[in-house]
Amino acid sequence: MEIIISILAGILFATAIYNLLQKQILRIIIGTVLLSHGAHLFILTMGGLKDRKPPILIDGIHEIEKYVDPLPQALILTSIVISFGITSLLLVLTYRTINENKTDDMAQLRGEENE
């Protein structure tokens, strides 16, 4: 199972990097979203994918081996919220940039030396 998910995360990374290298800004943002999906899948996979119960204790602690590792899930949750914040900021930023600079082509957003 870990191998399949690792390959999936790898495909997500490859697609993300292909999109990041495009000229259109929106494609680049789609690339960053795919990239964070890949990273989150990696965290989950690296914690180990075993067929166990969700980490919720109902009546006290019995047989701790029965549950999946809760730490990667907490890490992913933190990371999801952070990348959500950044993505929304990036979308607004892009909207403003396209409005001000009148282009969404990264090649035309290069700039000069003395501004």
């Binding site: 990041l20 680049i28 960053t32 990239l35 964070s36 890949g38 990273a39 989150h40 990696f42 965290i43 996979t45 690296m46 914690g47 730490l71 990667p72 890490l75 990371s79 952070i82 990348s83 950044i86 900021l89 990036l90 930023l93």
Partner: peptide, 19 residues
Amino acid sequence: VLINLFSSVLFVTAVAFLY
């Protein structure tokens, strides 16, 4: 923002591998 977002995602991945 883009370069820092990219390196942050790499950071998370590195932490995952280390974990």
